[in-house]
Simulated assay, not measured.
Amino acid sequence: MQFVSLPHNTKPEQYNTWLQAALHGSHTDPFCCTPSWQLAFHDAFGPKRRLLITEEEGSVIAFAEGLVSEEEIYITPLEPSWFFGCPLLGDKAPQLFAEAMRFFAKTYAPRFPKILVGGLGPGLTYMQQLLNKTGLPLQAHLVKAGIQGSASLEGGLDGFLSRRSANLRRNLKRASQKAADKGIYFERVLPTTAEEAQNTYTRMIAVERASWKGIDHCGMAEPGICDFYNFLLERLAPERGARVIFARHDDRDVGFIFGGLAGQVYRGQQFSYAHDFHAHSLGNLMQVEKIRWLCEEGVHRYDMGPLDGPKMQYKTHWTETAFPLRTWLVEKA
């Protein structure tokens, strides 16, 4: 067991096992467990961090080292901002975690780092089982709790809409007619090369800068987060994992919606539309077009991310299932 460093946009030797473990687990947010999500964040926000990625019999653990000072050391998932993804994947992950804890105890002795494990469901039982396997005097504290929203795509688009409110269906029908009268149409994009990903992302950022988020400098066009989504789209391209739809008017992009696939689960990421088109319900209409596309592909589930937090209330109209998401801090007892 050892730390490694990864150059930009490269893959660790455990990549395929990592991807398969993320796709076939029962995690709250499977897409954010994938190496594409985790490594894109690493490339954008912490490319100099040392990584501990190890596998055994189809299971993987993936952590990053964060050195605040010689005395303050953190071990976290590669994406330690939202903690959507779980760094412990597969049946052998608890044993790998125990080995990693003993490795950290030896590597940093006499200190022991603070370990953050996110992307877990509710309850202390699993965490306590992890600690028991280490044979070390460790304790865990719940440091973050959230709720993720999800919708079934069973029954196709008609089935999905049947589970929405009558009021939402009426509003969508009215908005769709208004958009058609305006000449708004939708274009599907599935980038498969780095060049296609870059061209697609350039279009997305142009829309974002024309949106209220871009005007207020609080969206994905800002430094750091702009690189993250760029790298994410780039990593998804060779796996054919990205799904982007543009709303267009005449020869202009006036909206986009973007997300990625983890097997038969789609995870929404970002959508935006030009501020001068705010009266045309493009957010809702692009959601419908995205669901239409996903249903045609046989996707089973649409994950919409966090339901709690500012400006997330709209998601309750589009989802019917809520999954708890927990982050734990492990430290010396």
Score class of each variant (00 low, 15 high):
1 M>F: 02
11 K>V: 01
14 Q>G: 03
14 Q>P: 01
16 N>D: 15
24 H>V: 08
29 D>S: 15
30 P>C: 12
35 P>L: 10
35 P>V: 07
36 S>N: 14
37 W>P: 11
43 D>L: 04
43 D>Y: 07
44 A>Q: 05
46 G>P: 07
47 P>I: 02
48 K>P: 03
48 K>Q: 14
51 L>N: 09
52 L>A: 11
56 E>W: 03
58 G>R: 09
62 A>Q: 06
64 A>F: 01
65 E>T: 04
66 G>S: 10
66 G>L: 13
67 L>M: 12
67 L>F: 05
72 E>M: 11
73 I>K: 09
73 I>R: 09
74 Y>A: 12
80 P>H: 13
80 P>E: 12
83 F>L: 13
83 F>Y: 14
84 F>H: 09
87 P>Y: 00
88 L>I: 02
89 L>C: 08
91 D>Y: 07
94 P>T: 01
100 A>W: 04
100 A>E: 00
106 K>S: 13
107 T>Q: 12
107 T>A: 10
107 T>N: 07
108 Y>G: 02
118 G>T: 05
120 L>D: 01
122 P>W: 00
124 L>K: 14
127 M>N: 05
134 T>G: 06
134 T>H: 03
143 V>N: 04
144 K>C: 06
147 I>S: 10
149 G>S: 01
150 S>M: 10
152 S>A: 08
155 G>E: 03
157 L>N: 06
158 D>C: 02
159 G>N: 02
160 F>E: 08
160 F>N: 07
161 L>R: 01
162 S>F: 06
163 R>N: 12
166 A>E: 10
169 R>S: 02
170 R>E: 06
172 L>P: 05
174 R>G: 07
176 S>L: 11
184 I>H: 04
189 V>E: 04
189 V>H: 01
190 L>H: 08
192 T>I: 09
195 E>G: 06
202 T>S: 12
207 V>A: 05
214 G>L: 02
215 I>M: 08
226 C>F: 06
228 F>N: 11
228 F>S: 11
229 Y>T: 03
233 L>W: 00
236 L>Y: 08
238 P>V: 04
239 E>S: 13
240 R>Q: 11
247 A>F: 00
247 A>S: 12
253 D>S: 12
257 I>K: 04
265 V>R: 11
266 Y>V: 00
268 G>V: 02
269 Q>R: 10
270 Q>E: 13
271 F>P: 06
271 F>L: 14
271 F>S: 15
273 Y>E: 08
274 A>K: 06
274 A>M: 07
279 A>L: 10
282 L>R: 08
282 L>M: 06
285 L>H: 09
287 Q>G: 07
290 K>G: 10
290 K>C: 15
293 W>C: 12
293 W>L: 15
293 W>S: 14
299 V>A: 10
303 D>F: 03
304 M>G: 12
308 D>R: 08
315 K>R: 03
319 T>V: 13
320 E>P: 04
320 E>C: 10
323 F>V: 07
326 R>Q: 13
327 T>V: 09
329 L>H: 04
332 K>W: 05
332 K>G: 15
